[in-house]
Simulated scan of single mutants.
Amino acid sequence: MMAYIFAGQGSQFRGMGAEVFGEFPDLVDRADDILGYSIEELCLADPHERLNRTEYTQPAIYVVNALSHMREVRSGSGMADYYAGHSLGEYNALLAAGAFSFEDGLRMVAKRGELMGGVEHRGGMAAIVGLSGTEIFDALSEAGLFDVDLANFNTPSQVVISGSAQDIATAQSVFENLGASYHILSVGGAFHSRFMAPARAAFEDFIEPFHFNTLHTPVVSNRRALPYLNGSVAVDLVDQITAPVRWVESISYMARQGVTEWKEVAPRAVLTPFLRKIIKSETSKQ
């Protein structure tokens, strides 16, 4: 069995999408009409240095991921038994499974990026390597850092936390004293945490009129680490904004269902190293 996995923020770089824009001129034009600017210029040249701003990053990655997957489908190798996407990448997984059109997906992603990028007191994030989620939670509690959330469970020993910029800075010595590696991330906010509640509320109102089709292929939800239920797509996409990305459990679920072949769709590969560590951990349990 085979699964496609789609990367989210952090996979962007100037020059991305050069190999696919020319293959889908009609979709590129439609994207430009929706966004009000040239997506190709943003991705290839980034003349105004906006590519790393959340409100631009999210639609840029969505478009490049979508066109890249469409090229795979056109070549005859695009069919999968499962789809999954990390955070923003979940929109590409749902698009691939037929949940909505390219255009509607882009409208949702553009609003999502705008709302998440516009949250006041946006905060920051840090990746902790070398400790489990339980160990990180306990360390945060012992340090009195109760306003820091566990945001992304990327591998069994890499977890991303979200919180205020001050708390993220304070936490560094806490975890380095425990022997962990600590990397403050260059992101535009405390994503997948309670700090995104204003964006979640506004997005819930925005997404309400959209129609979601029955999925033709299972998509594993970030929020539940189980396949989406038809009728639950809008709920999961809204809740995803403040809920942690349960990536380890999502990959483990697909592996248990028999997935042995994995294809990452991303401007640059960021999920494949996570995948190897998760599969290695799963294999060691057997």
Rank of each mutant, 00 (worst) to 15 (best):
Glu41Val: 12
Leu185Trp: 07
Glu261Arg: 14
Glu55Leu: 12
Ile39Met: 12
Ala93Asn: 08
Ser164Met: 11
Met108Leu: 15
Val270Cys: 08
Asp26Phe: 06
Leu67Lys: 00
Glu249Phe: 03
Leu67Val: 01
Lys263Trp: 03
Ala202His: 01
Ala84His: 03
Leu145Trp: 01
His69Ala: 08
Ala243Ser: 15
Ala255Tyr: 11
Gly17His: 00
Ser193Cys: 08
Glu176Gln: 13
His48Pro: 03
Val259Arg: 02
Gln166Leu: 14
Ser101Arg: 01
Val159Ala: 09
Gly117Gln: 07
Pro227Val: 14
Arg223His: 15
Leu215Asp: 05
Ala60Val: 01
Tyr83Ile: 05
His121Asp: 15
Val233Ala: 13
Tyr56Ser: 08
Asp81Ala: 06
Gln158Ser: 04
Asp29His: 14
Ala180Leu: 09
Leu185Tyr: 13
Ser281Glu: 12
Ile136Asp: 07
Asp46Leu: 07
Gly22Cys: 00
Pro198Lys: 01
Phe102Gln: 01
Gly89Thr: 11
Val187Thr: 12
Thr242Phe: 06
Ala180Ile: 06
His48Asn: 13
Ile34Asn: 12
Gly78Cys: 00
Met108Ala: 08
Ala31Met: 02
Phe175Ile: 02
His216Phe: 14
Tyr182Ala: 03
Phe102Ala: 03
Asn92Val: 10
Gln12Met: 09
Gln166Val: 13
Pro59Ser: 01
Ser173Ala: 14
Ala255Asn: 11
Arg30Asn: 06
Ser38Ile: 00
Ile278Met: 10
Phe203Trp: 03
Ser193Lys: 01
Ser87Trp: 00
Met196Thr: 00
Ser141Ile: 11
Glu55His: 05
Leu275Gln: 01
Glu120Tyr: 08
Gly98Met: 04
Ala99Asn: 12
Ile207Arg: 02
Pro267Phe: 05
Arg14Ala: 13
Asp236Met: 13
Asn230Pro: 07
Ser232Pro: 02
Met116Pro: 10
Pro267Thr: 08
Thr272Gly: 09
Asn222Lys: 08
Ala97Leu: 13
Tyr62Ser: 05
Leu115Trp: 01
Asp46Ser: 07
Phe102Met: 04
Ile39Trp: 05
Asp147Leu: 07
Met70Ile: 02
Thr242Pro: 04
Ala151Arg: 02
Val63Cys: 12
Val270Ile: 15
Gly98Asp: 01
Ile161Gln: 06
Arg30Met: 04
Tyr83Lys: 04
Ala180Asp: 06
Ser77Trp: 12
Arg256Ile: 00
Ser284Ile: 08
Gly189Ser: 09
Tyr83His: 15
Ala84Ile: 09
Gly124Gln: 07
Arg276Lys: 15
Val270Tyr: 02
